[in-house]
């Protein structure tokens, strides 16, 4: 029983981490309709930047969350403007290849600059276990969990209540109609891509104390993030959040009760079942929206 509670707690913490990364991917996927294979590499770039800021300027990783969000927003916006935008009219395979190419280029750039060694942000205080009624969570994990909740709620309010949010939703629902209503669709895409990347900027600052950074660190997270996005129904913030929680808990439980190397089998099996029985995802808008 003790182990079960610890595993579920652990899964929720893991889920919160996936949630922050997946929410960004959902924004890009749901609004710009581009499958961003370089998403994990955005995370990697952010983590290297957090490491450099912490190593050379002694900046606390949580303080560097602010510059990271801004930097990744800029990178995302530039990628949209100069790589994706020229390809918007092209076949979607070409857009996918563009992001795959970007991903490969970034990984190799990191290898060139930093080599294959790993670098770690030295903030052992954030890895201190907090004991809650005999169960262990880390200080940094709690911060990630709270941030994930705030991020999802904040993005939801932003989408529902602000004019820009409404314009983004309008663009996502019908690009041509939005354009006719005077929404500058190109600019909306740039902002949406930037926002998606900015989420990863936040994630990079929050998970740096937990994971050392290597050129391939992005690939550790991104496949799971794609599963979460589809599970959550492509466009829904809450869907992505709940999807991430489900994957996190399944990951944790199956790693213990089945086998650590079979946990991917378990959640991909769930994924396939959902695609068969509910192709629009658990919280999808129905077949017509895609």
């Amino acid at each position: 029983m003790d182990v079960l509670v610890q595993l579920i707690l652990n899964g929720i913490m893991l889920g919160a981490m996936y949630a922050i990364i997946s929410v960004g991917l959902t924004l890009i996927f749901g609004i710009v309709r581009v499958v961003n294979f370089a998403h994990g590499e955005f995370l990697m770039v952010g983590m290297y930047a957090v490491y450099l800021l912490s190593h050379h300027f002694g900046l606390h990783p949580y303080v560097s969350a602010v510059p990271m969000v801004l930097m990744l927003f800029a990178i995302g916006a530039l990628v949209q403007r100069f790589i994706i935008q020229p390809l918007l009219g092209a076949d979607e395979h070409i857009q996918i290849f563009a992001t795959v190419g970007l991903s490969t280029a970034l990984i190799n750039l990191a290898l060139l600059i930093f080599g294959a060694d790993l670098y770690s942000v030295q903030e052992p205080g954030l890895r201190k276990p907090l004991s809650i009624g005999g169960y262990t969570v880390l200080y940094a994990q709690v911060v990630i969990f709270v941030s994930a909740l705030v991020l999802v709620a904040g993005l939801h309010l932003f989408m529902q209540k602000t004019p820009l949010g409404r314009a983004i939703r309008a663009t996502a629902q019908n690009r041509n109609a939005a354009q006719l209503m005077g929404v500058r669709v190109d600019r909306i895409y740039v902002i949406a891509f930037g926002l998606g990347a900015a989420c990863v900027g936040l994630a990079s600052a929050l998970i740096s104390p937990l994971f050392p950074v290597t050129p391939t660190i992005g690939t550790y997270f991104v496949l799971t993030a794609f599963v979460v996005v589809v599970l959550g129904g492509m466009r829904s913030m809450y869907g992505a959040f709940l999807g991430a929680m489900i994957i996190g808990i399944v990951d944790s439980l199956s790693g213990y009760y089945i086998a650590p190397d079979l946990k991917e089998v378990v959640y991909f099996a769930i994924f396939i079942l959902i695609l068969i029985f509910k192709p629009t995802g658990l919280f999808g808008f129905g077949r017509g929206t895609e």
């Binding site: 182990v3 610890q6 595993l7 652990n10 893991l14 981490m17 994971f211 690939t219 550790y220 997270f221 990951d251 944790s252 439980l253 199956s254 790693g255 213990y256 086998a259 650590p260 190397d261 946990k263 991917e264």
Partner: peptide, 20 residues
Amino acid sequence: TLPYSAKSVDLTPVILRLKS
């Protein structure tokens, strides 16, 4: 005997199994 993926982001389940 527990195999795991080198790309794991969480080895807590492995450790809990060893612990129990």
